[in-house]
Amino acid sequence: MGELSRPRDAWMMGGQVTGHISTSSGSSVTGRLSRSQWFERLARAGYVASGLVHLLVGYLAIRVALGSNEEASQSGALAEIAAKPGGKFLLSVLCFVLFVLALWRLAEGVLGRAAHSSTESADKKDETFDRVKAIGTSFVYFSLAFTAFGFARGSGNSSGDKSTGITARLLESGGGKVLLVVAALVIIGVGIYHIHKGAKKKFVEDLKGNTSSLVRGLGMAGYIAKGVAVTVIGGLVIAAVFQADPEKASGLDAALKTLGAQPFGVFLLIAVGLGLIMYGLYSFVRARDAKM
């Protein structure tokens, strides 16, 4: 994205003017957003909100491993918050900062990250991947913000029930089944990416400055645990298609309970729950040190 940092050059290069103007415009917008301290701080607060949700999901997963029948998912975590005194107000705050973080990530995906604009030799493939990833994560944060909004209003529903309903409708047609398989493969790919990112400690590249061994340990365990859970979700969607059973595709709660049903499942589920808690703690670090 070297041309992004040289808007003046665009006016001096004749036939290449159009391309340079458009990318320079995108960079300037991203740059203005990145220089808005209030916007950046609210976006960083979104990582705190995400971390809190992951802490609660990990806690619920451990409770399920010990015999509870609670819903170990994002909606289960938000329901837990809603049930506490002042919970709906807290959910309103979480909804707002998650929405801002989603907007920030969407802007990075569409316009490019301002931090890259001064890198003359930026790898175009890496840049494209980063943009696609930013857009994808923006939808995740939008979805979580929308779910938090529902629970703040007192109309929140189980995400597992929603997933089951959508799956049941798609299973009614051949095209829907193909779409489910494609979605499952994408989900599995995301899960494997998380595992790889954690195992190779690639998440360090998302943070400013030097990272401590504690932060690296939190990120490694957190990304691997989240990757395992996401991969199982994708596998269950495929199982739902081939077994014509939409109940299998009921999201994170079903994935975690499937892990718990395996041999030594109690220990496996506790390990994943602890990993999700560590991911939540890592998200708090990310709120402070993430490259924005």
Rank of each mutant, 00 (worst) to 15 (best):
V237D: 03
G260R: 07
A82C: 10
L106E: 08
K162R: 13
A115M: 11
L185P: 06
L268K: 13
A261T: 13
I270M: 12
L171R: 08
R216W: 05
S213A: 13
K202I: 06
K125E: 12
D289M: 12
F89E: 13
I192K: 04
G265P: 07
G227C: 06
M13P: 02
L101R: 14
F139W: 11
S92F: 07
D130S: 15
R63W: 08
V237S: 04
I224K: 01
R35W: 02
K197H: 08
M292C: 07
L94D: 02
I238N: 04
S50D: 12
T167F: 03
Y279M: 12
T128V: 14
I192W: 08
G265I: 13
R216C: 07
Q16I: 05
A102W: 04
K124G: 08
L52E: 09
V285W: 12
A45L: 14
I233F: 09
E127G: 11
R105W: 08
L268W: 13
G51I: 09
F96Y: 12
L55W: 15
G31L: 05
G265Y: 11
A225H: 04
R105G: 03
T147C: 03
A134F: 03
T164N: 07
E40K: 12
E120D: 11
V285S: 10
S36I: 00
G191H: 00
R6W: 13
V232P: 01
L78N: 06
G87N: 08
V132S: 05
S92H: 07
T258Y: 13
L170I: 10
S159N: 09
A10P: 04
A225P: 02
S22H: 10
K84V: 08
P7F: 10
L236H: 09
S159P: 01
V29R: 07
L56K: 08
F284N: 10
